Simulated assay, not measured.
Amino acid sequence: MIRTAIRLTPTFAFPFFEKRNINDHDKLHNPEPQTVDTGLERVKKMFQRDEFEEVSVELHNVIQATLSGSFIGACFGGFLKSRDAYIKFIERNQATAFTSTMQAKKQLQDHVTIGFAKGAVHWGWRLGLFTGCFSLITTVIAVYRGEPSLVDYIMAGALTGGMYKANLGIAATIVGATLGGALSAIGGLLILNILKISGVSMDEIRGALYKIKLAREDQYNQVLEKSAKEKHDNLTRHHDKLVTEKGEKKIEEIS
Rank of each mutant, 00 (worst) to 15 (best):
N30K: 04
N30H: 03
P33N: 03
Q34G: 04
T35Y: 04
T35W: 01
T35F: 06
V36C: 06
V36G: 10
T38A: 14
T38G: 14
T38I: 03
G39L: 05
G39W: 04
L40W: 09
E41H: 06
K44E: 09
K45T: 02
F47M: 12
Q48F: 06
Q48I: 03
R49S: 07
R49M: 13
E51A: 14
E51H: 10
E53Y: 12
E53A: 08
V55G: 13
E58L: 06
H60K: 15
N61D: 13
V62E: 00
Q64F: 09
A65S: 08
A65R: 03
L67T: 10
L67S: 11
S68N: 10
S68Q: 15
G69N: 05
G69M: 14
F71S: 11
I72V: 02
G73E: 02
A74F: 01
G78R: 00
G78S: 01
G78E: 00
F79A: 09
F79Y: 07
L80E: 09
L80S: 05
L80N: 13
S82W: 00
D84I: 11
D84V: 07
I87M: 03
I87Q: 01
I87A: 01
F89N: 10
N93L: 12
A95K: 04
A95E: 07
T96S: 15
T96M: 13
A97N: 08
F98C: 07
F98Y: 12
F98W: 15
S100Q: 13
T101L: 09
T101C: 15
M102S: 09
Q103S: 05
A104K: 08
A104D: 08
K105E: 12
Q107K: 06
Q107E: 11
L108V: 01
Q109V: 03
Q109L: 12
H111G: 12
I114N: 15
A117Q: 02
K118P: 10
G119A: 07
G119E: 02
G119Q: 04
V121N: 11
H122W: 09
W123D: 09
G124A: 09
W125F: 13
W125L: 13
R126M: 11
L127G: 02
G128N: 14
G128A: 08
G128V: 03
F130Q: 07
F134R: 07
F134V: 05
V140K: 00
I141V: 08
I141D: 10
I141Y: 12
I141L: 15
Y144H: 13
R145Q: 10
E147M: 06
S149H: 05
